[in-house]
Each structure stands twice: as structure tokens, then as C-alpha cells.
Nucleic acid binder design. Structure first.
Length: 606
DNA sequence: ATGGGCCGCCC
DNA sequence: GTACGGGCGGCCCATC
């Protein structure tokens, strides 16, 4: 039965007083942007649905209900939770049918709309939702039809949840308690609030500082384009790419008639000079640094990338109400990692000089600091823990540098010499080869790829890998076992206690390319996904700890968490934060210690 | 307009 | 002939 509530909400509170679980949804007057509001708020169970007209009713009275230990079922809760916060309401004990469905389908290719509520309603509850009504809902248009639609939206959530949990329990991703953070389901439901908080809080971008970096990029870009023009117009070999350009005010001048953003045109120019150049990628160009034009093109590529991907367009993401940048998180990728977009705050430059300058433009408010923590060598520690290789385990236990230790063994050299150049490639140091190897093996890197990456012969690469695995046989066996498991069982899990599953299609019927990909993803998933589990648990610990404190969660990048905190408590918080992150790590790493690098800064540092 | 391919930024 | 895991996104260019 549907109840339309447009006066007061005691009826709702009374109804749910002795219920353990309720389903919630909201209809808003648009996407979340700090100006929009909730129009209708629906609460219900299988028998009764209450549709509250938020234009007329003060929903603050629902505070105790939302903070009670009753389970609140949502579909895509992050969306509604942010709106509730905007209306001054907090919430906990949420079950999210979208997150649950993602857990049940990680790794599977699914058609568009697969995770939509109407699909779930049909699949799990044989219910029908008429989504065409949604577009007609607005502040001035609440009628019988929209109320019916709004009520329907919550009607099936209970059945969906019941059946999802059955499946998740069978797969070991839940024990039936959807809030238990020792299970994947609980991990996701709980950390959802942290992701909602990071979206809600956003990060401040210092516009003036950022503009200065863009100006610097522009200067470099102008210079390098001038140089490219000079080369094209003065070297006879490029004559055909040169044209005269004349405007009304200046005399004719020779310029390059090439769009340097076009890989096809770029390659054409380069091959005209040297037909052995295969592509315009940075890796390929590195081999042809003897040509001036190649050096200039590499510079051009670098600056135009920064300009096009991270230039003025970033300003469009500054919200006019909060004056901050609010990214959107997608909480469950195939491995359990998180992505974000609009903008993608996980790909803000950090590595190069100018990249570092761009990242430093993300700053705290006046009187605040940014306190960030990251898990040092997280994936390598996970490999150590679960391979139980003594070299790896002891390196971390003794606080030694794993790359150097392994390097000495792989190349039979003294540990003092790991930073000397290799004989087979003088511009690369031993330790750098080892680093490529250590990270690459977690991805199932082949000797061919290693050979290409550091530009050595395939035979040399093969023998390096062989010697490496001879030194650490348990790591080799560990990775092999993971690869085989994915192939044989069609699923692979992250380490205990989580066991987050990634599903694969049938190995036998895959083509060779796909077979290789399944094997490599099987090796990688427990490592990458284990890292993701750990970071999500840390987010939960932090979210719970900072509740009622003036500390804000603002960002996360896989093995890194950023917070914004008043000056006076920054140092103290940094200590506590690394303690919380270590606590989370200790739930997964039982034998290998974790190191959390925590820093207090006036900007987002890396 | 749309989508695939290439390329490059992040961990 | 493919073979480095997980992403997002800008640009070019062919196609509709």
C-alpha cells in the first residue's frame, strides 16, 4: 500500500519503529551539484511504501531512523546519501544493491543498463519499473503517477537484497551480515560512505597557482613549436611538409604544415626521414634520440599532453558553490579498485617537474593542512606475505630495500653496486632493471615485454628473469599457482579475510590472446585487489574515527588516502592516521610489516 | 554525432 | 602473430 506523506512524518516513524530493515530512495530535481534538492523521499518495506513530499515536510525528523541500527537498502546509495547530507541528515548501516551486484559480476562483460534498478527488479523480483516517468518528475509536477513510480522504486529492493545475499554467501563474500567489515560485502557497504564523503568534500584547486603552471607549459609549447617549424623548414628532407603562411599584417613566413597532434601525420614525417621508426609513442621515440626532430617531438608530446588533459579545462570542474573540485568515484572495478572521473583525480600529473607543480596546486583551505598517507610498496608486501619467500619477507621485516636486495641476487653483484650501469645497457642502472622486473612480474610480464621496456635482447631478458626466479623460487611458484587457479576454476580471489572474486569466462573456449590475459589477470587480481581491500578498510577506520572531528576525507588513489585538517591538529592526526592505516593493513598482512608514509603539507604531495 | 585507435597520465 | 595488471580521457579520423 502506498502512503503519500505531505504533512508530518510521525506515521512513518511509528511504522518503522519495530522493523529491522527498510528500503530507501529519493527523487531529486537533478544531479547532485550543491544547488539541487530532494523532491520525494521514499521509505518502505514489501507491504507499505511511504512517499514523503520533501517540498512540504521537514525530513530532519528522520534523523534517528537513519542513524538507528536498522538496515537501510538503497540502489546506488552514494547518490542519495550526498543529498541527505545536503538536507542535514546523516545515515549509517546501508546496504547498496548496486555495489552487491558489482561484486557478483566483477570481471564479467555486461551490457549497458545491466546494473540499473529496473534490470535488477526484473531479474530478482520479476518486477516492472517504468523508468519513463522519472524524467517527468520535477518540483511542480507531483501527481498520482509520479507517486506510484516513486513507491515502485523502493518496492523491490528487499527481494533484490535477499537474493543477492544468498549468492554472495555462497561465494564467500558475505556471511549474511551486510555490515560486517571482515567480509567484502560489508567492506563495500561501509566504505561507500567514505567515497560519498570524498565526493561531497572535494578538493580546493588554487586557480592562480594553477594558471601560472599552465602559462609555463604554454611558454614551453610555443618554444618547441617554433623549433619544430625551424627544423621542418630548414632541413631539405622535410621540404614537402613546409608551406608559406601569410596573414594581413606580416610578411610571408615558412611554417610546418603538420598537425603535431595527429599520430598519422607525425609518423609520416618521421618515416620520411627514417623508415625504421615504427610509431610515435614515447617508448619508440626514445630509440631515435639522435635526431633533433625526435627530441623536439618528445617535448611537444609531453607539454601538449599536460596542456590538453590538465590545462584550463580543469577550471570547469570547480564547483561555483563550494569553490572546490568534486570528482565522482566508481567504487568497484574488476579487481576491487576504485576509479574516478569528471575529473579523473587519480591521474593528476605527479612524476615530472611540471607534473609535480600541478599536483601542488591542490591545496587546503586557509588554516588547514593536507595530511596524506600512503602504503609503501603495498603490492610487493602482499607478494611477500602470500608467497612466503624468505628473501622478500625478510627484506620487509628488516626494513631493507627490496629492490636492491633482489638486484644483488639477480645480477650476482655486490649490494653496493646496484646503482651502477648495466653492461648490456649503459644508460640503465641494475636496480632500475630490477624495479621493472619486480613490478612487471605482478602483472605477468613476459620476457619479450621486459626486453622491449628496457631495450635489451629477448635472450638477455629471458636469462635475467631465469636468474631472478632462481633467487626467489617461492615467488615464481606463487605467481604460477595463481595463474593456474584462474584458468582452472574460472574465478580468482583476493587474500583472506576478504576473498573478493573476479570472474573469468571459460578458459577452454577463449582464444590464445584471451587465454594469456586470463592468466595474467589471475596473477594480478589477488595483489591489486588485496591492496584495494586494504585501502577500503583504512577508509572505513578513518571515516569512523573522524566523525565528530573537524577532519575531512578528501581523496584516495589506490594505496593513498588524503585528508584535510585544521593546522593545530595536523601533526597529531598524521600519527593517528598512519596508525589506522597500519591497523587496516594488519588485517591482511599477518607476517609482513607495513610502512605507512604520512605527510603534513600545504598542498597535495606525492 | 559516434566510436575505434593511438597515445599518455595515474597507481 | 599476441603477450604488462587496473583505470580515464584527449585527439584524430573514418563512418554514419
Amino acid at each position: 500500500m502506498i502512503h503519500f506523506i505531505d504533512t508530518e512524518i510521525s506515521k512513518v516513524l511509528n511504522y518503522f519503529a519495530d522493523k529491522k530493515i527498510l528500503m530507501v530512495d529519493s527523487e531529486t530535481d537533478g544531479a547532485f551539484d550543491f544547488n539541487n534538492k530532494i523532491i520525494l523521499l521514499q521509505l518502505g518495506d514489501r507491504e507499505n511504501q511511504f512517499v514523503i513530499d520533501v517540498r512540504k515536510v521537514d525530513i530532519k525528523g528522520l534523523r534517528s531512523l537513519f542513524l538507528s541500527d536498522k538496515i537501510k537498502i538503497f540502489h546506488n546509495a552514494k547518490f542519495d546519501v550526498k543529498f541527505l547530507w545536503l538536507h542535514g541528515l546523516d545515515i549509517n548501516n546501508v546496504y547498496d544493491t548496486l555495489l552487491a551486484e558489482r561484486l557478483l559480476n566483477a570481471g564479467c562483460e555486461r551490457p549497458k543498463g545491466y546494473y540499473a534498478l529496473d534490470r535488477l527488479a526484473k531479474y530478482y523480483a520479476d518486477g516492472y519499473l517504468d523508468k519513463s516517468v522519472r524524467v517527468t518528475i520535477n518540483r511542480k509536477n507531483i501527481n498520482q503517477k509520479t507517486i506510484q513510480y516513486a513507491a515502485d522504486d523502493v518496492k523491490y529492493l528487499m527481494d533484490i537484497r535477499d537474493k543477492q545475499i544468498k549468492r554472495l554467501v555462497k561465494l564467500g563474500m558475505s556471511n549474511g551480515d551486510c555490515q560486517d567489515i571482515t567480509t567484502v560485502l560489508g567492506l563495500e557497504n561501509k566504505s561507500m560512505l567514505a567515497f560519498a564523503a570524498m565526493e561531497y568534500n572535494g578538493i580546493k584547486l588554487d586557480k592562480d597557482k594553477y594558471q601560472k603552471v599552465i602559462d609555463l607549459i604554454d611558454e614551453n609549447l610555443d618554444k618547441v613549436m617554433q623549433d619544430l617549424d625551424d627544423i621542418i623548414c630548414h632541413e631539405p628532407v622535410f621540404e614537402r611538409y613546409c608551406v608559406y603562411y601569410q596573414d594581413l599584417f606580416t610578411s610571408a613566413k615558412k611554417v610546418a604544415n603538420v598537425n603535431w597532434n595527429s599520430p598519422i601525420q607525425k609518423l609520416d614525417v618521421l618515416q620520411h626521414m627514417d623508415s625504421t621508426i615504427q610509431s610515435t609513442s614515447a617508448a619508440e621515440l626514445l630509440n631515435f634520440k639522435k635526431y633533433d626532430i625526435v627530441n623536439k617531438l618528445m617535448e611537444y608530446n609531453k607539454y601538449s599532453k599536460l596542456k590538453n588533459s590538465f590545462g584550463e579545462n580543469m577550471f570547469e570542474f570547480i564547483n561555483p558553490v563550494t569553490n572546490r573540485v568534486h570528482t565522482e568515484f566508481w567504487q568497484i572495478l574488476d579487481t576491487g579498485r576504485v576509479s574516478c572521473k569528471n575529473p579523473n583525480m587519480q591521474q593528476i600529473p605527479a612524476r615530472t617537474d611540471i607534473g609535480g607543480m600541478m599536483r601542488e596546486c591542490f591545496v587546503p583551505e586557509q588554516g588547514y593542512k593536507i595530511v596524506g598517507g600512503d602504503y609503501s610498496g603495498c603490492e610487493l608486501r602482499i607478494i611477500a606475505e602470500f608467497s612466503q619467500d624468505p628473501v622478500w619477507v625478510n627484506a620487509f621485516k628488516d626494513g631493507k630495500d627490496l629492490h636492491s636486495e633482489l638486484c644483488a641476487m639477480t645480477f650476482n653483484i655486490d649490494i653496493k653496486d646496484v646503482k651502477t650501469p648495466t653492461p648490456f645497457k649503459p644508460d640503465i642502472k641494475y636496480r632500475d632493471v630490477q624495479k621493472t622486473l619486480n613490478f612487471g612480474l605482478a602483472y605477468g610480464m613476459s620476457h619479450i615485454k621486459l626486453a622491449n621496456t628496457i631495450d635489451i635482447s629477448e635472450d638477455e631478458a629471458q636469462s635475467i628473469i631465469k636468474k631472478f626466479f632462481t633467487a626467489v623460487p617461492k615467488v615464481e611458484r606463487f605467481l604460477e599457482a595463481l595463474g593456474n587457479r584462474g584458468k582452472e576454476r574460472g574465478i580468482i580471489k583476493t587474500p583472506p579475510p576478504y576473498g573478493r572474486i573476479r570472474f573469468f569466462e571459460d578458459y577452454k573456449h577463449a582464444d590464445n590472446k584471451r587465454k594469456g590475459a586470463i592468466e595474467r589477470a589471475s596473477k594480478n587480481h589477488p595483489i591489486q585487489g588485496g591492496n584495494a581491500d586494504m585501502t577500503k578498510l583504512a577508509l572505513i577506520y578513518i571515516y569512523d574515527y573522524i566523525k565528530d572531528k573537524p577532519i575531512k576525507l578528501i581523496h584516495t588513489v589506490h594505496d593513498e588516502i588524503q585528508t584535510e585538517v585544521p593546522d593545530y591538529m595536523a601533526d597529531e592526526w598524521a600519527v593517528k592516521m598512519s596508525e589506522l592505516m597500519n591497523q587496516a593493513a594488519a588485517q591482511i598482512l599477518k607476517n609482513v610489516p607495513m610502512v605507512v608514509d604520512c605527510a603534513v603539507n600545504d598542498y597535495w604531495s606525492k
